[in-house]
């Protein structure tokens, strides 16, 4: 048989196999993405009241709104703090769990549990645990009044969000990084040990350089993840408050669109956020990705 037959040839079967998924993807991915950009050039009336082409006016309105810039700034701060922690904490845990010690077996099991707990559920739990009157900090608040109150102090609310986000993010990043560590061949360690590198030294000279692909991947995914999945945490823990101090872009879009019925404004912000996410991924891919040696 010739190499011709290494694939099936069929006129309509592959199209038929692809059709159901492609239909869903076009309908619920490409149409919404296109529509967000399309609507950002129109003034859309809620409840189907017609629309009117306004050029760049929506962008002018959004970009001159200080609340938009506030939400964007908070999104960037959250992205940098929460996603760094959500990679570094699992990284330390993965390096520890990679060692053959008694603790690493229960850890490998338990650290995956948060995957089964919805962001909104852990949000409800954290809202209670960090409640200033009945929660963890309540006794300290009695001793030092005003020490902790996420309902009034924006920083406290922000810290609660970060803690909850890191909690939810542990399983995925831990599993990926641990898998990376375990795929390092033992001969690497032996060679490093022969050269006199002790176990501490080998973390920085062998393990970290060799799991760069996994680290890079977790960072890329974590950046997008921290921007979007934070919605459930904000909605259950802070409601965007106090005083808008935890209103991140994804939450502001929801509030503008579904409570304020400002479809054009929400679509314009959606379009801006999409461009931001895509640029971010592209930047990471080109600038960060290039420095990483994928060869083993």
């Amino acid at each position: 048989m010739s190499s011709e037959s290494s694939l099936f040839s069929h006129r309509w079967l592959p199209a038929l196999l692809l059709a159901p998924l492609m239909l869903l993807i076009v309908l619920f991915f490409y149409v919404p993405v296109f529509q967000a950009f399309y609507w950002s050039f129109f003034l859309e009336q809620p409840f189907g009241g017609g629309s009117e082409f306004v050029g760049l006016q929506n962008f002018q309105r959004v970009l001159s709104d200080p609340e938009f810039w506030g939400a964007t700034g908070r999104t960037v701060i959250f992205m940098l703090t929460a996603s760094s922690l959500a990679v570094v904490v699992p990284l330390m845990l993965a390096v520890a769990a990679d060692r053959k010690i008694g603790m690493s077996y229960p850890a490998r099991n338990i650290l995956v549990w948060p995957k089964g707990i919805a962001g909104a559920s852990i949000g409800v739990v954290f809202a209670f645990i960090f409640n200033p009157f009945v929660g963890l900090m309540a006794p300290l608040n009695v001793l030092f009044p005003g020490l902790w109150n996420p309902g009034i102090d924006g920083t406290d609310a922000f810290v609660t969000l970060v803690a909850a986000h890191v909690w939810s993010g542990i399983p995925f990043n831990f599993v990926i990084l641990l898998a990376g560590l375990r795929s390092i061949p033992p001969t690497m360690y032996q060679a490093a040990a022969m050269d006199g590198a002790g176990p501490w030294r080998r973390i920085f000279d062998v393990q970290l350089p060799l799991i760069m692909p996994q680290l890079f991947l977790t960072f890329v995914l974590e950046f997008t993840e921290s921007i979007t999945s934070v919605f459930a945490l904000i909605d259950t823990i802070t409601g965007g408050g106090p005083g808008g101090s935890t209103t991140l872009l994804v939450y502001k879009i929801y509030v503008d669109g579904f409570r304020g019925f400002d479809l054009s404004g929400a679509s314009t912000q959606t379009a801006i956020l999409m461009v931001f996410v895509l640029l971010l991924a592209a930047c990471q891919f080109f600038f960060l990705g290039r420095r990483i040696n994928y060869e083993r």
Partner: peptide, 8 residues
């Protein structure tokens, strides 16, 4: 992700 394009 879906959360970004939820409006449309």
């Amino acid at each position: 992700p879906l959360d970004i394009r939820v409006i449309t």
